[in-house]
Amino acid sequence: MADFEEQTASKKLAGFIEKRKVAFIATLIVFICLLIGYVIFANVANNNKLKGLQAIDEITFEMTDKSSGLEEAEISARLNTAFEKASAYTKKGGIVGARANMLCADITYQQKKYAESADFWKAAAEKAKKTYIAPLCYFNLAACYEETGNNEDAATYYKLAADDNSFVIRTHAMFSYGRLLEAKGDYATAAAAYTELNDNFSDDSWADLAKSRLIALKKDGKIE
């Protein structure tokens, strides 16, 4: 009885497939086409990324190669040329766009265009979220804001950089955050930042500076 039921079910399934064979084949063809399209797209996207990164590297090399002996005018001309070339890649997504914005940010910072540099660092950070590049962008963005006198935003981005455990100059960011808090008179929060730095990185030179600031704040009666 079970064999008969299994045979009947098999026949029904076979009949169902036979009747809809064209639809099944069409669906399979569409799936294969989509898969092929994805593979092609992935390869093209990867090639475009490599080409973009190579272009940024070439622009950087042209800007910096044998530049130590150049006159000021020649350096300025190189910076302008590099900026113009790199600007063509700043709207791109991912690592290529991030690298292009970082290069433009560095160039404009050298030219003392700090507000413009901040915009590029911010764009780079947006394109490189959750990567090792992000905290570096935050730190440099904070430095730009500090140059423009915007200490409020500078403190915010120093804090973002300091909160990233992988950031290689995290202790510098932590101290800078505390320094700006102290500068605006928020002594209690500044002391907390200095204390965290001193407790967790006692052998670091920035922790030594933090400790000296704690001593000075207590001596001046600004904290207990």
Rank of each mutant, 00 (worst) to 15 (best):
L79P: 04
D153G: 02
K112R: 11
E224W: 01
A105C: 07
G52K: 04
S202N: 09
T148I: 03
A134E: 15
I215G: 00
F24I: 14
A42R: 14
A105E: 05
Q7E: 15
K112T: 11
Q110R: 07
F31A: 15
F201E: 09
F139E: 09
D220W: 02
A191Y: 06
L214Q: 06
Y38Q: 14
I29W: 01
K218V: 00
I29Q: 05
C33W: 01
Y132R: 11
I169S: 14
A82E: 07
A210R: 04
N151W: 09
T81Y: 03
L79V: 01
R78D: 02
T64V: 11
A100E: 04
K222C: 04
I59Q: 04
C104G: 05
F24M: 12
E71K: 13
R179C: 07
I36E: 07
A55T: 13
K85I: 01
Y138I: 08
A123I: 00
I40M: 07
I36W: 02
F175C: 05
D163S: 10
E196F: 02
H172I: 09
A42K: 14
V39F: 10
T60G: 03
T90V: 14
D220N: 13
Q110A: 06
D204F: 02
R99Q: 14
C144A: 13
A216V: 10
E71V: 06
S202E: 14
T171Q: 15
E196G: 09
E6A: 13
W121D: 06
E147P: 01
L136T: 11
S67N: 11
L209F: 10
A26P: 06
V22C: 02
A100S: 02
K92H: 07
F61G: 00
L53K: 02
G37C: 05
D186K: 06
I40F: 09
N198G: 05
A82S: 09
Y145S: 05
G69W: 07
F167P: 10
A191I: 08
I169D: 15
L53H: 01
C104L: 04
M63C: 06
E74W: 01
K130W: 00
S76W: 04
W121T: 05
S87K: 12
